[in-house]
Design a binder for these strands. Structure first.
Lengths: 149, 149
DNA sequence: GAAATATGTTAGCCATGTCTAACATTTATT
DNA sequence: AATAAATGTTAGACATGGCTAACATATTTC
C-alpha cells in the first residue's frame, strides 16, 4: 500500500500513546500495517520535522507540535466519521472512508462539517425530524409524506 | 505534487475530450498541471491497462472501459461537490476538496451520498426547511426557533 | 548470566509519479 | 518548401514510501 504518510503516522502515534504516554516502533508498525523498517525511516523524518522526540531503540513521543498536528488529523477523521454516520454509511465503511479522506479536507470544509454535525447533534428534536425522513427516504425511496419539510 | 494518479488522468481525458472526441497530450498536461513527459509516461500505463487507445504523436481516446472508469470517478466528484455545496462549502474550495477526496470514496458511501443529495434536491419544499435552519445555524450559531424540526 | 526471542536499525532495492534536458515530429508561418 | 514554433518522446534524475535481508540491541526465559 502507498497511501500512508506523515499524517497517518502522527495519528497512529497519538492513538497508540494513549495511556502509556509513548509509542514503540512496533506499536506503530502494527497500527499502520507496515513493517518495522518503514516506521524507523519515518521516525527520522518526523523527528527532523520536529513532530516527535526519540532516539535509537527508545520510546517515541509526540512533541507539542506533534500533538497539535495529530489532533488536527484526528479531528478531521472524527468529523468525517460523524458525517458519514449521520448519512447512514455503515460503521466499518465509514471508518475506512474517513481514514482515506481525512488528509484531503481543507479547514474551511472541516469547519462546515463541524457546524453540520453540531446542527444535527444539538437539535432539540432527537433525532431531527428531517433525518428520520431521510431514513425513510433511504429505505423506500420516497418521502414519508408530502408536506413535512 | 504527488497526488495525481490513473483516476485523475481518466477524469481529465474525459473532460478534455468533450466535443473534440479526443485529447492531446498537451490538453491533459494543462488540465492536471503537470509537464508533458509525465503525461506521455502515464499514457503508456493507461494504454497497457486498456483505458485509452493512442499511438505516438497521435490522439488520445478513451476506450469503452476507459469511459466507464472515467465516469465512475466523475460521478464521485459530482456527488461530493453537491454534498459540500449543500453544506455551504464555498464553490472553489468544494471543487478542490471534492477532487482530493474522490479517489477514496467507497461505493457504499457514494450510494449514501447519492441518496442524501437526492433527498435534498427532490424535496417538495425548496429549499427544505431544515436546510434553511442549517443556514441560520451557520450564521448565528443557534436554531431559528425551538420547535421547528 | 547465557541462550533464545523480540524489537529496532541499516543498506539497498522496488514502484509510483514528478521533473529537466535533449532530441524528434508535427504544424504553422512566411 | 524552408524555417520557426509547438507539441511529443526518451532518458535519466529525484522524492516518497514500501519491502527484504542482514545485522544490532533489548528483553525474556531458563
Amino acid at each position: 500500500m502507498y497511501r500512508s504518510s506523515v499524517e497517518d503516522y502522527l495519528e497512529a502515534i497519538f492513538n497508540v500513546s494513549q495511556g502509556k504516554g509513548y509509542a514503540r516502533i512496533k506499536d506503530i508498525a502494527d497500527a499502520l500495517n507496515v513493517k518495522l523498517p518503514s516506521v524507523s525511516k519515518m521516525m527520522r523524518k518526523l523527528k527532523s520535522k520536529g513532530f516527535v522526540s526519540f532516539s535509537s531503540y527508545g520510546k517515541v513521543k509526540l512533541t507539542e507540535n506533534g500533538v497539535k498536528a495529530a489532533k488536527s488529523v484526528i479531528g478531521k477523521h472524527e468529523i468525517l466519521l460523524k458525517l458519514l454516520k449521520i448519512l447512514s454509511v455503515p460503521d466499518e465503511i465509514a471508518q475506512r472512508d474517513a481514514c482515506a479522506m481525512e488528509h484531503h479536507l481543507s479547514s474551511v470544509t472541516v469547519d462546515q462539517l463541524v457546524k453540520f454535525v453540531k446542527f444535527v447533534e444539538d437539535n432539540p428534536v432527537k433525532p431531527p425530524k428531517w433525518l428520520k425522513h431521510f431514513d425513510h427516504f433511504c429505505k423506500f425511496g420516497e418521502y414519508p409524506c408530502r408536506d413535512k419539510e
